[in-house]
């Protein structure tokens, strides 16, 4: 995601400027910078997402958008946590300064897990794909779409003391969805179908060799989400036309 050129990181918001724990830049997208830090106590690891001001935007507009987006992301995360969907919890935020601090999710991304897996472990992969579908299904069941589903936006969190297994390259663990910057609350089948379609396309391009496994994702999705039938039917339409409509004029 980040460009090759190094841009200066934005000034850190207040509670973190005095932190003794060094901040590590994890990634820099178009919208936000993500740091690893600690929150309140030095032993509570946290992910800090900062939305730096955009100098080309009118300052009034910039503040309005930052506020809306910080709040929208935090609200979606809070809703998911309340409804029992595995997401990082919100620890703190400031819409004035444009940051959200979230629980740090241990483990690797699903992308890394799939790439680094033991190729012989067909069953493990199958199970992982089902759990991925299950996570998306539970998300959709509570009326939330993610907006940017990819295997890099899913973490594989080691469960209980089986943590070592996760480290060792196994495919066990709980799926935790992250990066809700484009998420929204919706009741529309179309939005859910597009969400799945985006995942399908991203999965195909990131893991071409495992593309045939996407059916397992949909299986897991159906188990976890009662309203899946309509969404999957709609997915057929979306597949036919692509995410984009045909152009007029």
């Amino acid at each position: 995601m980040a460009t090759t050129t190094k841009t200066t990181p934005p000034a850190l918001p207040v509670p973190f400027t005095t932190s003794t724990t060094p901040l590590t830049l994890i990634t820099q997208g178009a919208e936000a910078h993500l740091y690893r830090t600690t929150f309140l106590t030095p032993t509570t690891p946290a992910a800090l997402k900062i939305r730096p001001p955009k100098p080309w935007r009118h300052p009034v507009l910039d503040r309005r958008l930052t506020r809306q987006r910080v709040l929208a992301e935090a609200r979606v995360l809070a809703k998911c946590a309340r409804e029992g969907v595995a997401v990082p919890g919100v620890l703190g935020l400031s819409w004035e300064e444009g940051w959200v601090a979230m629980e740090w999710v241990e483990g690797r991304s699903v992308k890394e897990a799939v790439r680094g897996r033991d190729v012989g472990d067909e069953e493990g992969l199958r199970g992982l794909m089902r759990r991925v579908g299950g996570a998306v299904g539970r998300l959709h069941a509570v009326g939330v779409v993610h907006g940017d589903l990819t295997t890099s936006n899913m973490m594989l969190r080691p469960v209980g003391d089986g943590g070592e297994k996760g480290e060792a390259g196994g495919l066990e663990g709980e799926i935790v969805l992250i990066d809700f910057g484009l998420a929204g609350q919706t009741v529309q089948e179309e939005d859910r179908a597009v969400d799945l379609y985006v995942l399908e396309r991203a999965f195909g391009s990131t893991h071409p060799r495992e593309e045939g496994m996407f059916g397992e994702v949909l299986e897991g999705y159906m188990e976890a989400f009662k309203g899946s039938k309509g969404t999957l039917r709609r997915l057929e339409d979306v597949r036919m036309r692509g995410r984009k409509k045909s152009m007029i004029g």
Binding site: M1, A2, T3, A30, E31, K54, R57, L61
Partner: peptide, 20 residues
């Protein structure tokens, strides 16, 4: 100001996406 900010935003997102 409003519509151009929108255009710059989606352009930036595409640039971040393809690494241009």
């Amino acid at each position: 100001e409003n519509v151009f900010a929108m255009l710059v935003e989606i352009t930036e997102r595409a640039m971040a996406h393809v690494g241009a």
